[in-house]
Design a protein around this nucleic acid. Structure first.
Lengths: 240, 240
DNA sequence: CCATAGGATTCATCAGATGAATATGGATGC
DNA sequence: GCATCCATATTCATCTGATGAATCCTATGG
C-alpha cells in the first residue's frame, strides 16, 4: 500500500536508500550525481537545509552528514517558536494541548514506570524543595520539566513525547511564572509530592487527579470541561 | 518577557517587521540588503526554502512572496510524512494521538457547534450512506474526514486543529481500510449517526461515548485505558 | 609507538549569469 | 471609454564556479 512520496528529492533519496539513523550520507557533490539528473549544489543545499531544520540530518564539515535519531520534536519546536516569537500568547494554546495530552495518556505512561524512574522523580522533588528553601532561593524549572517528562519516559509514542518535550522547551523560553511568588512554586511541588506518592503506591487515578488539580495552578488554565466530562463516562462504563 | 529569537535570520526579520498574513515580502535581492549585512542570494534562498516547507510563506515568481495564514499543519505534515514514508507503521502512533485528542477536546468542541455545522454533518452522513449503498459502491473517505473535522471546526486551538487536519491527510495517504469489507464501513457510519444524533440532542456525553466506541472499529486500536481511568475520576469529582 | 604539523576533503558562503514565469502597462480595436 | 491582447520588465528558479573555514587523515620526526 502506501507508496508515499515527498516533495523533496533529497528526502525521497534518503528513504529509498533506507539509511538508518547514524548512517553517513554521501557528500554534496556525490548527491548531485547520485540518483538525480545533474542537480546543482545550491539546490541540494536548499533541501539539506530543510532536512537540517527538521532535525533529520546532522550536517557538519568533513564528517559527511549523518542521519539523526528519530524525533518529532525539532519540527514542532521550529514551528511553535515561530508562532511564539510573533505572539507569546500562542503558548496558552500549546499549554492546553499539553495538559490534555498528559491527562489523556496518564495511565498508559504510569504503568510503564520503573523503580528507578520513581527514585529519580523523588530526587527531583528533593532538589526542588532544596532550591525553594535554600539561602539563595532559586526556581526549580529544570526539576519541573524533568519530573513531568520522566512520567512519560517510556510511553510508546514518539509523537506524543515530541509534543511534550517541545512544551517544556517553550515553557523555559517563555519564562512564565519566573517571577511568580514563592508560595506558587511551593504549592506546585506539594502537588508533585502528592502525584509521586500516589504513583509509588500504585494509585494512578489519585495521581492523575492530583495532576489535574495541579494544572489549575498554572496562569494559563486549561479548560477542564472535558476532563470532567470524560470522567462522567465512568458511571455507565464504556461497554466492550 | 520572552524575547524569543530563532536561528533563521529571515524568520527573525519577518517577525521583527511584523508582517501580517497576506502581506507581500520584499524581493530576494531586497532581502539581501535589508536588515542584514550583505548576505548572498543562495543563503536567503535556503532560509526561504525552509520557510516555504513550513508553510509560512507562499513564494512564486513575480508575485513577490506572501506570508501565509497561520497554520500548524504543514510543519507537522512534512515531519509525519517523512516518518510514514520510512515506515507506514508510524501511522499507528499518530492514530492513537488523534483518538486521545478528539476524546479529550470533545466537549469543548461540541459546545461550539452551530446549527449549520450539524446540518452539514447530516449532509455528510447522507452522502456517505449513499456512496455505500449505491449501484457502484464507493468508500466515503472524504465524508469521514469532513464529518470529524467539522466537530472541531470552532475549537479555539490552532495546534490541536493542525494535528487533526494532518491526521486525515495521513489517513488518506496511508489508505488504511480502503479494502476493508463493506460491513466495516457501514458500522462506522452507524456510529456516526449515533454521534450526530446525540450531539443534536445536546447529549455530548453520549456522543463522546459513541465516538470512543467507534474508534474501536479501527484496525489501529487506541489504548482505551486512560479513557476509562479518566472517567473514573467522576465518582470523586475533581474538587474546585 | 606517539605527537604534531601539513595536506586533503568537505561543508559554508558568496558572486554572477541564464532561463522561465508572471504581472504590468501600453497599444489596438470596438 | 472600455476591454483585450501583446511586449517588456521584474522576480523567482536554477546553475556554474570560486573561495574560505573546519575537520579528518597522513606523514614525518622524535
Amino acid at each position: 500500500m502506501a507508496d508515499i512520496r515527498l516533495d523533496s528529492d533529497l528526502l525521497n533519496y534518503i528513504i529509498q536508500e533506507q539509511f538508518e539513523p547514524g548512517a553517513r550520507l554521501p557528500t554534496i557533490s556525490e548527491l548531485q550525481d547520485e540518483s538525480r539528473l545533474g542537480v546543482s549544489a545550491s539546490k541540494v543545499r536548499e533541501e539539506l537545509e530543510v532536512a537540517r531544520a527538521l532535525g533529520l540530518v546532522d550536517v557538519r564539515s568533513k564528517t559527511g552528514m549523518r542521519l539523526k535519531e528519530y524525533s518529532f520534536a525539532p519540527a514542532v519546536h521550529l514551528r511553535l517558536f515561530y508562532a511564539l516569537a510573533r505572539d507569546v500568547r500562542y503558548f496558552e494554546y500549546f499549554s492546553a494541548l499539553r495538559t490534555h495530552l498528559e491527562m489523556s495518556f496518564w495511565h498508559e505512561a504510569c504503568e510503564l514506570l520503573t523503580l528507578e524512574d520513581k527514585n529519580e522523580m523523588r530526587g527531583y522533588l528533593v532538589a526542588a524543595r532544596s532550591k525553594l528553601s535554600g539561602q539563595r532561593i532559586r526556581i526549580p524549572f529544570e526539576e519541573h520539566r524533568a519530573f513531568h517528562l520522566t512520567v512519560f519516559r517510556h510511553l510508546d509514542n514518539p509523537f506524543v513525547l515530541g509534543l511534550l518535550e517541545v512544551y517544556w522547551e517553550a515553557y523555559a523560553a517563555v519564562e512564565l511564572n519566573r517571577y511568580a511568588d514563592l508560595s506558587y512554586h511551593q504549592q506546585v511541588w506539594d502537588y508533585h509530592e502528592r502525584i509521586l506518592d500516589a504513583i509509588c503506591s500504585g494509585d494512578f487515578d489519585a495521581a492523575q487527579k492530583a495532576f489535574i488539580e495541579h494544572t489549575r495552578l498554572l496562569h494559563h488554565q486549561p479548560r477542564m470541561q472535558d476532563v470532567d466530562h470524560a470522567a462522567a463516562l465512568v458511571e455507565n462504563k464504556v461497554t466492550e
